[in-house]
Design a binder for these strands. Structure first.
Lengths: 229, 229
DNA sequence: ACCTGAACACCGTTCAAGT
DNA sequence: ACCTGAACACCGTTCAAGT
């Protein structure tokens, strides 16, 4: 068997971690699994990362590198006229990177401390607001208000049933009826939204649209607060 | 040794899980640990919960019971005049329950599916908005916009250093200088906020105040969108 | 210097066996 | 019906040993 003799390195370790997370999810990112991906024993990793915490920090750092790169490319291509449009585009760019790595929100919210790259990102968000004329005080509140939206994801607590799993027997209707009983307002809302969407049952709840709506609510609110200061 | 002969039950299991989480954190909520808390072997739990997923669902359900109880008590005591004030008070009440259980955000965001109690809570939030005159469409957007704030927590991605760990030697200043170099806007913001707070170095960043600010931004934005419909 | 094998103290879970 | 002991296939991590 021809073994690649490329020596291990931090970058190779983190790249392997990203690959495992992309394919099998965050739960499968274990020392043993990442090592086996590199054709090596788990214990070898400890020569390059201190422990599993450090592995996850590196995973997040690799993700942030990707986000920063996307953002830099978009912002180099064309300027935006004001801080609101600049941030809006930046957050949506970050979002597109996050959507490529569905494990990202889970990873970020599970971390107790966060690598420097995340601080760097928020530092630049803050800089954009201050350069746009917001006071440090209001920009500080803006940072908190954006929260994870600055990185492109909302903390949705539940994903409403899409109805796209093809259970064709009576099961689905029974469930629906029980659901309508227990959660009358949610049921009425779904009915109303589906009707408005003109029988486009799929996609009655478009998370991209909802994300942008919430983001604009926050951006407009901050702008308003700033002119009232 | 006198052993309590109280038989195991789902409620006793979930109560034990809450106790372990409160004392030692979510990571210590394991089948073996919860069992030992009840003076029983891990395998006995499987007669009452299907698996660990079900244990965590029950843990969340116990939490939601507490939230619902707090909310019901507050709302029975005095009505609020409009949907905004009703939701504002409800979310802040939920927040006070969540603050008693610091593991709550972590648990909720880590769950892939969510027990019925959470749907029930959001159903009532939706009902309050619709009763207050919002369209289903706008109320739907409101649900998404609130996200975890409806349950009383924001998804903060990083907690700025509070400066309350008492390292008294040069270490702290060195770190501060390196920090100011790498994150100039954040450093300037902290300096500005600390100055404005009148040397009240602690508490320059009050998460309760920030939470309420963001919440009002969302409530006001929805109200505005509703009058423009 | 870098990698490894064996070991330790943990997990969740299954299964046959006890009462 | 309810609880258990032993076992299995996993974890992260340590440590002495290999090259």
């Amino acid at each position: 068997v021809v073994r690649t003799r490329t020596p291990l390195s931090r970058t190779r370790v983190f790249a392997a971690a990203v690959a495992v997370a992309d394919v099998d999810g965050l739960a499968h990112v274990t020392m043993r699994r990442v090592a086996s991906e590199l054709g090596v024993e788990a214990m070898s990793l400890y020569h390059h990362v201190a422990n599993k915490e450090a592995l996850l920090d590196g995973l997040l750092e690799a993700l942030m590198d990707e986000v920063d790169e996307s953002v830099a490319a978009v912002e180099a291509a064309a300027p935006e006229p004001d801080w609101r449009r600049t941030l809006r585009r930046r957050f949506l760019t970050a979002r597109s990177a996050m959507l490529r790595h569905p494990w990202a929100p889970q990873l970020i919210t599970s971390r107790t401390s966060v690598p420097a790259s995340v601080y760097g990102y928020y530092d630049r968000v803050l800089g954009t607001m201050v350069d746009g004329g917001l006071s440090y005080h209001l920009a500080h509140r803006g940072l908190h208000a954006f929260g994870s939206m600055a990185l492109g994801f909302a903390q949705e607590l539940f994903t409403p049933p899409t109805g796209e799993d093809g259970e064709d027997d009576g099961q689905a209707e029974d469930e629906m009826a029980a659901m309508a009983d227990a959660f009358p307002h949610l049921a009425a809302m779904v009915a109303s939204e589906v009707h408005a969407a003109g029988d486009a049952v799929l996609g009655w709840c478009d998370s991209q649209t909802e994300f942008e709506f919430t983001l604009d609510l926050l951006l407009d609110g901050l702008e308003r607060a700033s002119t009232q200061e």
